[in-house]
């Protein structure tokens, strides 16, 4: 019981890490997806390269490079900043792929119709394509939120004091690993259930009336 305050401190860091990297990843993901779909040859190739490299390597390797290896080229980051950067860069690549799936599922007639009323390509993307693509991406986005919530736990390895790290610290002192980590497991479980319920509500609210389609996008390991 006396361990509760420090677990709450850890939980706070976990939630901060989750939400900031989700949002930062969203903006990065939008940029990458648009670059990949609408960019010229070079821009599109750069976006594909970035997405494939990030998705083809473990998050932990990315965190190690940012936290342990960057100082050797003169970039030294606090552990928490390295964690935020690593999680955001990672999430951006996955979100880009979800969003690309959504963009490509929007009928090409939408873009054509926007151009016929005189919108520029950029205006059409901003006003017509993106608002629809973002709505279609909400289920994938909820999946990503839960993925991030769980995977923030590995930044404990680069010494960020989030929930798992606090738990490990207490457990190592009391040698009550089972009890402490059972509590932590329950905290994560409750959070995943709460988050997915909230997003489901959100999704229903934003659904375009009469349009029931869901995008078929391969999701990563979340729920």
């Amino acid at each position: 019981m006396e361990s509760l305050p420090s677990l709450l401190d850890g939980l706070y860091i976990t939630l901060i890490l989750t939400f900031i990297s989700l949002i930062a990843g969203l903006f990065l993901g939008i940029g990458l997806a648009l670059g990949r779909v609408y960019g010229g040859k070079i821009v599109s190739a750069i976006c594909i390269g970035y997405i494939e490299i990030i998705r083809g390597t473990p998050l932990l390797v990315q965190l190690f490079i940012i936290y342990f290896a960057f100082p050797s080229i003169g970039i030294t980051l606090e552990a928490i900043d390295a964690a935020l950067l690593g999680l955001s860069l990672n999430s951006g690549a996955y979100q880009a792929e979800y969003l690309r799936g959504s963009i490509q599922s929007i009928p090409s007639g939408q873009m054509v119709a926007a151009r016929t009323i005189g919108m520029t390509k950029l205006q059409s993307i901003k006003n017509i394509v993106l608002p629809q693509a973002l709505r279609i991406s909400i289920p994938a986005w909820s999946n990503e939120l839960i993925y991030l919530l769980k995977y923030t736990s590995i930044v404990y390895i680069i010494q960020v004091k989030e929930l798992t790290a606090e738990g490990k610290f207490i457990a190592a002192e009391t040698f009550k690993f089972l009890e402490i980590f059972a509590i932590i497991a329950i905290i994560y479980l409750v959070l995943t259930i709460v988050f997915s319920t909230i997003i489901e509500k959100f999704e229903k609210k934003l659904r375009i009336p009469g349009l029931g389609e869901k995008a078929k996008i391969g999701l990563r390991n979340a729920l």
Binding site: P107, Q110, V112, A113, I128, P131, Q132
Partner: peptide
Amino acid sequence: VFQEFNLFNH
């Protein structure tokens, strides 16, 4: 005006 309407769905 399009055969398949192309109204903005959202």
